[in-house]
Computed example of a mutant assay.
Amino acid sequence: MSDTAASPPLTRARTPLAHILAERGAHWRTLGDTAAATKLSTSPALDELAIVDLSPLPRIGFKGRGTIEAMRARGLLVEAEPNRLFPQDDGSLCLVLAPSEVLILSAFDGNESRFSEWEQTFRLDDEECTYPLPRRDSHAWLAVTGRRAPAMFAKLCGVDLRLGKFPNHAIAQTSVARINAIVARSDRGETPVFHLLADIASALYLSSCLLDAAREYGGEFAGLDRLESLT
């Protein structure tokens, strides 16, 4: 999967932020039926404040009273603890939104083999008391990084996301820029990282609000490769 500098490649699926990233000199990496912006001409400090588009990466939800047990049967490390994020050994993240609902985000390499297997092998006849939700189609996915991120969110969100108040692996189901959203913290090394998921139809509006708020603190869009480099 080599990176190319051009307009977004012609793929079946495309991030709703494609033209915004192309304007910033994006290099694109093909990931299955879509492409992710890896390198951008903008270069904010990720440990200060940056926004990364993760919408091309795989994600899936499951819902139903047997969801936690079904996830464990699929090899996930997870507990029935609402509003808690559980990192997985392969770099993916399992967000427990309720005892009966989870949202699983892929690792940054975009490997969708496990997600495809879950979708293709799921059968109602198995009576697991859970069912999959196509979250890639419903939710845009952004990562907001850096120690200034909580100050930026304070302009857009009523939840106190200061690092001392909103611990690592916490989840808030709240409103960001007046849009229903999920905010989940999962730091990379010493750098705070907030994963933000919201209605994909509002992705352009949300990104413009984030960018407007971020610029006060020197924030801008960054490429996926910068986020991958954080350890």
Results as ranks from 00 to 15, higher is better:
Met1Cys: 02
Met1Arg: 00
Thr4His: 06
Ala5Leu: 13
Ala6Met: 07
Pro8Leu: 14
Pro8Gly: 02
Pro9Ser: 13
Pro9Cys: 11
Arg12Asp: 12
Arg12Ile: 12
Arg12Cys: 10
Ala13Gly: 01
Pro16Leu: 09
Leu17Trp: 08
Ala18Thr: 05
Ala18Asn: 03
Ala18Cys: 03
Ile20Cys: 06
Leu21Val: 10
Ala22Thr: 15
Glu23Trp: 00
Arg24Leu: 14
His27Leu: 04
Trp28Phe: 13
Arg29Cys: 12
Thr30Ala: 08
Ala35Asn: 04
Ala35Gly: 07
Ala35Cys: 09
Ala35Gln: 04
Thr38Ser: 10
Lys39Arg: 12
Pro44Ile: 03
Ala45Leu: 15
Ala45Tyr: 11
Asp47Cys: 10
Ile51Asp: 03
Ile51Pro: 05
Ile51Arg: 01
Asp53Gly: 08
Leu54Ser: 01
Pro56Met: 10
Leu57Tyr: 02
Gly61Glu: 04
Lys63Leu: 11
Gly66Ala: 13
Gly66Glu: 11
Thr67Ile: 11
Thr67Met: 10
Ile68Lys: 07
Glu69Asp: 15
Glu69Tyr: 03
Glu69Asn: 15
Arg72Tyr: 02
Arg72Lys: 15
Ala73Asp: 08
Leu76Asp: 13
Leu77Asp: 15
Val78Gln: 07
Asn83His: 14
Arg84Glu: 09
Leu85Cys: 15
Pro87Trp: 01
Gln88Trp: 09
Gln88Ile: 10
Asp89Pro: 01
Asp89Asn: 10
Asp90Tyr: 03
Ser92Asp: 07
Leu93Tyr: 06
Cys94Leu: 14
Cys94Gly: 06
Leu103Glu: 13
Leu103Phe: 00
Ala107Tyr: 02
Ala107Phe: 06
Asp109Gly: 03
Asp109Tyr: 02
Glu112Val: 00
Trp118Arg: 10
Trp118Gly: 11
Glu119Asp: 02
Gln120Asp: 12
Thr121Gln: 06
Phe122His: 08
Phe122Ser: 08
Leu124Met: 06
Asp125Asn: 03
Glu127His: 07
Glu127Gly: 01
Glu127Val: 05
Glu128Val: 14
Glu128Thr: 14
Cys129Leu: 13
Cys129Asp: 15
Cys129Thr: 07
Thr130Cys: 12
Tyr131Ser: 10
Ser138Glu: 15
Trp141Glu: 06
Trp141Val: 05
Leu142Met: 08
Ala143Met: 04
Thr145Cys: 15
Thr145Leu: 09
Gly146Ile: 06
Ala149Ile: 00
Ala154Phe: 02
Cys157Gly: 09
Val159Leu: 02
Val159Lys: 04
Asp160Phe: 09
Leu163Arg: 09
Lys165His: 11
Gln173Thr: 15
Gln173His: 06
Thr174Gly: 08
Ala177Val: 12
Arg178Phe: 15
Asn180Lys: 04
Val183His: 00
Ala184Val: 08
Asp187Ile: 05
Asp187Val: 07
Arg188Leu: 10
Arg188Met: 15
Gly189Cys: 08
Glu190Tyr: 06
Glu190Asn: 12
Leu197Phe: 00
Ala198Gln: 01
Ala201Lys: 14
Leu204Ser: 11
Leu204Pro: 00
Ser208Tyr: 04
Cys209Phe: 02
Leu210Thr: 03
Leu211Met: 09
Asp212Leu: 08
Ala214Ser: 13
Gly218Val: 07
Gly219Leu: 03
Gly219Lys: 02
Phe221Gly: 05
Phe221Ser: 06
Phe221Tyr: 13
Ala222Leu: 03
Ala222His: 05
Gly223Gln: 05
Leu227Ser: 05
Leu227Val: 07
Glu228Arg: 14
Glu228Asp: 10
Glu228Cys: 11
Glu228Pro: 00
Leu230Ser: 10
Leu230Lys: 03
Thr231Trp: 01
